[in-house]
């Protein structure tokens, strides 16, 4: 009978001070290690679901092949010339599409209760997020390598330096990290990976296509040109072109980064607010 259980008697406080009180917060070192552990989880997830790597590869490869061979001749005069123009745009577009993974992963964790489990642990509040984003940077790297490799196979020539390629990746990561705040907000509000896909692509398709990623701005009607020329995807595509095949870089890179700052400034606080109040 449960009623008869004796109460545990604690030793008097004076004779045994007991363990030291637990610390109030985590140290930066602990935060880093927890984020790495969370990133490890992302990689293990991919390991168990190799089809995700195919997803990460097939879609960009398909886009490169389709755009180069279907539209390339019409838009760029020749498939070769078009590829030199379009690969920067394809990389920019693909990078934005990848940010959806941040939202679907977060929505899954929220829906399944995994996020609650993490929040009940004595770890940094931001570790689940920073770990996930670290994993997403690896996805970006993988996709970039795949796109460049396919591009080179089809005749794309990197005419700059390896350092410029590294800079291109740096710019890509810097912008997508900032842009990911929109994805975090979406993930928290939608709380459902399928809805995330629908909402996400509804925004990302027009955003990435209404840019000069695939066709030069001058070929578009005036009202569209006004938007296309300031669209962050356009500015990033141009910066990537500059870094990979030569051309103006500085102004476009700065514009891309400013866009990043703007996205982070608006959606960062909103996402943090959503995480605080909606979880």
């Amino acid at each position: 009978m449960t009623l008869d259980r004796t109460t545990t008697v604690r030793p008097a406080v004076t004779t045994d001070p007991g363990p030291r009180p637990p610390s109030r917060r985590v140290s930066p070192g602990q935060w880093a290690s927890q984020s790495l552990t969370m990133a490890w989880r992302s990689i293990v997830q991919i390991k168990h679901n190799p089809s995700e790597l195919l997803d990460l590869s097939i879609q960009p490869i398909m886009f490169v092949l389709l755009f180069t061979f279907v539209f390339g001749g019409a838009i760029g005069g020749s498939t070769d010339a078009y590829l030199q123009f379009a690969l920067g745009g394809l990389i920019a577009q693909n990078a934005l599409f990848l940010t959806i993974y941040t939202a679907t992963g977060l929505a899954t964790d929220l829906q399944k209760g995994t996020f609650d489990r993490f929040r009940s642990l004595p770890i940094a509040r931001s570790a689940p997020l920073s770990g996930r984003i670290l994993g997403d940077v690896l996805r970006q790297l993988w996709s970039l390598v795949v796109l460049l490799a396919v591009g080179v196979l089809l005749g794309f020539r990197i005419t700059t330096s390896p350092l410029a390629v590294v800079a291109a990746f740096g710019l890509l990561v810097a912008f997508t990290l900032a842009f990911s705040w929109t994805s975090v907000l979406l993930g928290v509000l939608a709380r459902d990976p399928e809805k995330v896909q629908i909402y996400g692509f509804t925004v990302l398709f027009p955003l990435t296509f209404a840019s000069n990623a695939f066709a030069p701005t001058q070929t578009m009607p005036g009202w569209l040109q006004a938007w296309v020329s300031i669209n962050p995807v356009t500015r990033m595509a141009d910066a990537l072109r500059g870094l990979l095949v030569g051309g103006p870089v500085a102004a476009n890179a700065v514009a891309t980064l400013l866009w990043g700052v703007a996205f982070a400034a608006v959606f960062g606080p909103l996402a943090v607010w959503a995480l605080r109040t909606r979880t």
């Binding site: 989880r41 293990v44 399944k112 995994t114």
Partner: peptide
Amino acid sequence: YAGVDEAL
């Protein structure tokens, strides 16, 4: 609701 990561 079980908080395990189903992919792991």
